[in-house]
Each structure stands twice: as structure tokens, then as C-alpha cells.
Write a protein that binds this DNA or RNA. Structure first.
Lengths: 343, 343
DNA sequence: GTTAACAACGAAAACGGTTTCGTGTTGATA
DNA sequence: TATCAACACGAAACCGTTTTCGTTGTTAAC
């Protein structure tokens, strides 16, 4: 078992100083050709690689970015994560992943852990509880310390920082409009109970589309389900008691569940009822019938978020003082038409 | 913008030495009550938290563990990841996640990046390419450096280290046996093309179960699909040309795809054909009909892997020299019966 | 009135690097 | 022969901690 070799050991072995070794390995021209070659050969032989921790301490830069997401067994979030990881990789950054589990407290704890030097910046989506409590002091604090932060998807206006979101309102509007243009008159909405900003925006888009096209908003056509827990009975009751010819769902899981219930009730999809869901994941593709859904392009989102973050991190050196400027990037969602709607 | 405060700054401000501050914050009884209180008050006021990087350097312990998985947008792997993260969290460890993307090279690069001090140990599942090439020198190297390693799911006998796997052979055997006992005679297997050890073991279990129950192995009943890329035509041809009354699939995606093709061919599930898949994810639950599948208990697996790793990490101090002993934990998979089989 | 013990604190080394700033040696130049 | 660059290298500071080992000043004991 050979522990990793250090500069000091190389120096001792070769009877030179630590500084000489360090310089030789960086091809400094201060060091003679002979010595440099000797040192480099020795280093290669022993697989010398500088210790990242030491470098981080010296450079005050870890080359790590922290990602905090509400859930990891979740198609959309992992998609974003992949985008982040891929981009980070190209820039030599590692990703430390934390899961808040939709809990405010875990979010705070995780942030505090990471903020003490472990990372150079954060990318995160707010937990449901955080959005409900409307408490963002932990975000303010890390911003105050000068640590870059990029919020994605689950964002809030109360924190001033870089953000990347999809056009939730517009895409829900477009989807609803499509249903209307398909001749649908009684369009239902299945959304979440808890206060998630994305769901709200989607609901807004839905409402506005109805209004703009002369359909009136029927509260009975809106079903609010708990975000995490399944409530099959509530959905069944909804379908049993309500008459509708189309359904817009704020995620694909709601949509597929709803389709099953509708089918069990003898409805034909899309002839009797059309379905559109958000999040174009594997579930949408494999559903029977395949679900028309709104692709959120999570990987792009992750890419953009990582890019924004790293740019901020690396400019921080140069500009330092100058007042930071923040932007919000909007990723355009696109409707992927499949079998659950008529076309 | 207040940058994080350091011991040195507190010391200067309070006109004491750095050592005094450090000790006071740890409630050392070397320091007087007065001084301690003063220092602690000041530290709290400025939200002092020790710098993790400095601690890591000093303790030669990062409290980070590296997780390398082939894919992140993948139900089973994220489930394991969640298990790892949850356990790590309880022990005060952070998780650095890298994705090998099924590529040997990326796996090597990622490992090298992390092995230079960033983490205290690895948890990983081998990439497909690594398994195909049978090249494990990178694993050997990090083991040789004394860094703990736990392999899960995609493991190999050629590397001696801790492992956690499911009983692939037995569970495939049991599933096949169940199909036989249900009266099925022509049981197909849909597995992967590339050489993944888990697929092979499952195939073995399938074959042995057939043999033990007096059914002969028909090569025409075995379909090998590319792991990542969809090959719908190949599957369709398979179903068109082959007569079968049951199908065992090595993952749920294969299974759901296959069900759709069978249904399109006018087959009734489970009356005409039964289906069983591996990986009991959301896809199995939402499929129509719901898919009977073999739960791999990924979260448990992650839990166990993390526990094994952290134990090894933390015992390393004490025992140091003593020859390490490695174990392989087996997580028992369980069959979840749903609508795609008769019961 | 010594001396020993103790309380309260500081100096310095160490973790593993990078980098600035000497310093001694050489060869060329005046 | 004295002077000066250039060359090749080392010493030391620094990043932010922890921890060992002094070093004081005070007090109790003899």
C-alpha cells in the first residue's frame, strides 16, 4: 500500500528543496533542464499528483460546485443535474450533490455545511417547504458572503440572484390553447396542493388561455393533489363526478395516473378526453397511449445554470468589487405531441 | 458583502492569539471563563464556522465520499444514490457525484480527479465499457493507495474490495419459476447486448430455472437489445416471428416497451402473455397493465454501501496496518406482483 | 523566602502546496 | 581584477486550522 506521494517526499528523496520540485513540475525556467527532467521522471514514476485540498486552501478555490435539489429520484431534476454535471466536467469542476427532500431544515443544514469552504458556488431548486414558508434567509446569507448562487425552476422573486427557469406561464397557455383549438370545451387542470411557484404559473397560463378564448373558468374542473403522496381516491372521485373532454396536468405522473383512471371509466383517449402533461420524461413516452407533453429541456437548463455559475465564479476574481449584475435565463419549453391528443 | 471570518481575524480583533481563539471555541479548559465567553460571543456574532478545507488538510480527512455511476437519469441508480446520500448525511459526509456515462475513459478521469485528496472513499457501479474491456487498473490503483472502495450492482470478481449486490441469479430463477408454475411453457427473455454482469446473471437464473423444470432452452426465445439505444424494429420482428406466453425482462423499460408491442399485436396481458421486469420503479407502477417486477431495493443498497464505506474509512485510522478484510453484502430482491402476471 | 504547582495564554509546527524574494555561483564584461 | 547579469536554487510566507509545548504570573506549601 503506497500512500500518495508529496512534494516534500520527492524533495527529500532527490535532495533538493520543495520549491525546486514544485517549480520543476510546472516547467519553470528557473530550474535547469537537468534537474527538471530528473524531478519529472521521478514524479511520473511515483504517479505524483498535487493534493487538491492543499491547492484549494492555497487558491481559495475548490473547483467544486454544490447542487441542492428537492429530490433525486425524479426525472426532471436528474435531467437538470446531468446538464450541470456535464458542463461542470468540461470546466474541471466537480459537483457535490445534496438532497433537501423538500425540507426547509435540510436545505439550510446542507447549505451551511457546504458554504464553509467546500464549494465555490451553489445551484439549487427550492424545496417545497421553503417556498411555503417564504423564508430565504439562508440564501441571503450565502449571497452576502459573496458566494455565487444560481436558482433554477423553483425560484423566488424575493432573492436577487441569477436564475434559470422555463416559460411556465406561456407553455401552459399554449398547451391549453392547443386543446381549445382541438375543439375541447371542458378542459380540466390537475395541479399540486402545496404552493409551488411553477404550478401556480402553469395554472395562471391555463386560466388566461381559457379566458382569452371565451371559455369560462369552472372551479370544479380544477383538481389539486398532494405533491408527493398519492391520493387515488380523490382523483377517482374527481373523474366520476366531473365531465370533461381534456386535461392539462402539471407533471407527467399526474397525467399518466389520470389517464388510467379515465380509461378504467371507459373513456377513449384521445377521442373522448385529451391529455397533456408537463415534464417530457420516459414515463410520457412509455405511457399507453403515449402522452403529449411539454418538454422542459432539463439538461439545457442544467447546462445554462452551470455556465452562469462558473462564469460568475471565475469573474469574481477580476471584478471583485464592482456591483454584480444578475440575469434570469428563460428556457423555452416545447410541446411534444403524441397519442394522447388529437392532431 | 462580508467574506467569511477566520480565526486570525478574530484573534487580531480581540487581541489574543490564534491558538487561544481556537481553544476557546472548543471550550478547552486551558482558557479562562472570561476569555472563552468573550471569544464565543464574538464568533457567534460574526457567524464563525471553521473552514472545511483547512480542516480537511489538517485532519487528512475530507468527509466527502465520491460516487461514480454510469447514468443519473436512471431510476435504479438514483434510488441507490438517494440511499447513499441519506446515510452519508447522518454521518456528516457529503457526496460528490460523477457520471461515467458508461464510458471507461470518463470513469478513469473522474476517479483520478477525486482520488487526489478530494474524497475519503469511493462508491461506484462499473460502466458498461469498463465491464466490456475488463480493465480495472484504475480501481487497483486507488485500492493500492489505501483508499476504501465499495462496488455496487455492476461489480467484478477481479477486484478485491467491498461489494453490495442483489441476488440476480436467484431472483431471475424465482421469477422464471413463478411463470412456469403459472403454466407458462414458452418463456422469452429480453436482455442486453453488451456484457453487463447483472444481465448475465439474470440470464443464468432464467436458464437454470427452465432446465430444472424440464423446459428446454430455446435460443429463439432470447432477444438481446442494445442497452441504451432503442431498437424498436428488432423487438417488433421478435414478437412477430416468435411464439411465446411469457416474457422476463432484465429491466422495466424493456418490459414496458415489449408490452406495448404485444398489445399492438392484439395480445392480452396477462391472459395471453405474462410479463415480469427487473427494477421496480415508477414505470412499473404506472404501466398499463401495471407491471409485475422484481424490486431491487436500491435505497437499501445505497444505505448498505455507504455504511460499509464509512466504516472502512473510519476504522482505517485505528487498524491502519492490519490486513483489510472485504465482504460482499447481498440484498434480497423481491417480486412485486401486479397486473401483468396471473396470480 | 524558596519552590512547586497551576492557571492562562502564546509560539510554532504541521497538513501540502505555490510563490516571492533572496543568495551563492558562474561567466562575461569593463 | 573588480563588477554585474544571468542562472539555479533555497528559505520563508501564506492559505486556515489544530495541537503540542513552552512561557509567563500567581498562589499554595514548606
Amino acid at each position: 500500500m503506497k500512500k500518495k506521494i508529496t512534494l516534500k517526499q520527492i524533495a527529500r528523496e532527490l535532495e533538493v528543496s520543495i520549491s525546486t520540485v514544485s517549480k520543476a513540475l510546472k516547467n519553470s525556467k528557473e530550474i535547469s533542464r537537468d534537474t527538471t527532467e530528473k524531478i519529472q521522471a521521478f514524479a511520473k514514476l511515483y504517479h505524483y499528483k498535487p493534493n487538491n485540498i492543499a491547492l484549494s486552501l492555497k487558491n481559495r478555490r475548490t473547483k467544486n460546485i454544490g447542487v441542492i435539489i428537492p429530490d433525486i429520484v425524479h426525472h426532471f431534476f436528474t435531467t437538470v443535474f446531468r446538464g450541470i454535471e456535464k458542463y461542470a466536467d468540461t470546466r474541471g469542476y466537480n459537483v457535490i450533490a445534496c438532497v433537501s427532500d423538500e425540507s426547509f431544515e435540510k436545505e439550510v443544514i446542507n447549505m451551511e455545511m457546504l458554504a464553509n469552504g467546500s464549494i465555490d458556488g451553489f445551484i439549487m431548486a427550492l424545496s417545497a417547504e421553503t417556498q411555503r414558508k417564504n423564508d430565504f434567509h439562508h440564501l441571503m446569507e450565502i449571497l452576502d458572503q459573496g458566494m455565487p448562487l444560481v436558482l433554477f425552476d423553483r425560484v423566488t422573486d424575493e432573492v436577487i440572484c441569477d436564475k434559470v427557469v422555463i416559460n411556465d406561464f406561456e407553455s401552459a397557455y399554449m398547451a391549453t390553447k392547443k386543446l381549445i383549438e382541438d375543439g375541447r370545451k371542458r378542459i380540466a387542470l390537475i395541479t399540486t396542493e402545496s404552493y409551488l411557484n411553477v404550478s401556480e404559473k402553469r395554472a395562471q397560463g391555463y386560466c388566461n388561455a381559457l379566458k382569452d378564448h371565451g371559455l369560462e373558468l369552472d372551479k370544479n374542473l380544477i383538481l389539486r393533489l398532494p405533491y408527493q403522496f398519492e391520493d387515488e381516491k380523490k382523483s377517482e372521485a374527481f373523474f366520476a363526478s366531473t365531465n370533461m373532454d381534456a386535461v392539462l396536468c402539471v407533471n407527467e405522473i399526474f397525467a399518466v395516473r389520470a389517464m388510467r383512471i379515465a380509461q378504467a371509466n371507459g373513456k377513449k383517449i384521445p377521442e373522448d378526453i385529451s391529455f397533456i402533461g408537463f415534464t417530457d420524461g420516459i414515463i410520457s413516452k412509455l405511457a399507453n397511449p403515449a402522452l403529449t407533453s411539454i418538454a422542459q429541456h432539463g439538461e439545457r437548463m442544467g447546462n445554462v445554470a452551470a455556465k452562469m455559475l462558473i462564469e460568475k465564479i471565475e469573474q469574481d476574481d477580476e471584478i471583485e468589487q464592482e456591483e454584480a449584475t444578475y440575469k434570469t435565463e428563460v428556457i423555452e419549453a416545447t410541446l411534444i405531441e403524441r397519442e394522447s391528443t388529437i392532431n
